[in-house]
């Protein structure tokens, strides 16, 4: 195993951690595990590919377009998922609705990029540097830093702002929150938007380095979910820890054994963790599920 594998693992881990964070953000007020979350990764990657690699317009434009499109995607997801869930009343409604949303987005990406294997733009910063003898690409370092900043920022937002308090209250009981005058509908909408934006940024930054196929959204969701479960669904810090564990496990196993054994290790780890700790490694039991 090369030391570079560890850096690769931390890089992949920060992408999964961001997806896990987004899953958590949507889960807390809605109690919905959004299977369409990974599609925002593809959106970010697709925008970067389209604008940087095809249109040659640069990363500043990419960031702007990604933010706008991701926010729109979040709003759209909220409608596509919450409306059927409310109207249907079935206990499985959430999973069917999120799966349907995931497939709709996936088929849209497939239709647009049917002849593209990997959505791969040039990196934001070319090249790399040496850190105690380990070669690190600038793009990897940037992604890890952005992930840490997003995590820290969201943690602050959650604990220091009035809106953050409202979100935490909604997570505990949306019914009581309505009575307290908290605009729960708006919070749910906002959660979807924030989740989609964070995930899209992850996709945008990841695309130059890792393999992002147009149909890979579900795979990112599942790895993000694994990270969230390991960290315990609900906390940004848990998401970070879980993401890093998943990323390291994936890349290290891949570099030692090779091939698709990395995926296998991650899914096996998920199964083992859920069997031994039914409520995640660091988490509280997820009630009502």
């Amino acid at each position: 195993m090369s030391p570079e594998a560890i850096i690769d693992g931390l890089f992949a881990g920060s992408v999964y951690a961001l997806v896990a964070l987004a899953l958590t953000i949507v889960f807390r007020p809605t109690r919905i595990m959004n299977f369409a979350q990974g599609e925002a990764v593809i959106l970010g990657a697709a925008v970067a590919y389209q604008i940087v690699a095809l249109e040659k317009l640069g990363w500043a434009v990419t960031l702007g377009v990604t933010l706008v499109l991701a926010a729109f995607m979040g709003l759209l997801m909220e409608r596509m998922i919450m409306l059927p869930v409310r109207l249907s009343g079935s206990r499985y409604a959430w999973i069917i609705a999120t799966l349907a949303a995931a497939l709709i987005f996936q088929s849209l990406f497939n239709l647009k990029y049917f002849d593209v294997d990997a959505l791969r733009p040039e990196p934001v910063i070319e090249g790399g540097f040496q850190l105690v003898g380990i070669a690190v690409e600038w793009q990897e370092a940037l992604t890890i830093l952005v992930a840490l900043a997003v995590m820290g920022g969201y943690d602050l937002f959650l604990h220091r702002s009035a809106y953050g308090r409202a979100i935490r209250a909604t997570a505990h009981s949306s019914d009581t929150s309505v009575l307290m005058g908290i605009p729960v509908q708006r919070i749910i909408g906002l959660s979807f938007v924030i989740g989609a934006v964070i995930t899209a940024i992850a996709g945008m930054l990841a695309a130059p380095v890792i393999f992002v196929a147009p149909a890979a959204g579900l795979l990112f969701t599942i790895k993000g979910f694994t990270a969230a479960v390991i960290g315990g669904v609900g906390s940004p810090r848990g998401a970070l820890a879980g993401g890093m564990i998943v990323g390291l496990l994936d890349t290290v196993v891949r570099s030692m054994v090779g091939g698709s054994v990395g995926n296998f290790a991650v899914f096996a780890a998920l199964a083992v963790i859920l069997v031994v700790f039914p409520s995640g490694l660091f988490g509280k039991p997820m009630e009502a599920h």
């Binding site: 999973i95 979910f225 479960v229 998920l270 199964a271 859920l274 039914p278 997820m286 599920h289």
Partner: peptide, 8 residues
């Protein structure tokens, strides 16, 4: 529980 069963 049932969500985690789904994930497993």
């Amino acid at each position: 529980t049932y969500l985690y069963f789904g994930m497993i």
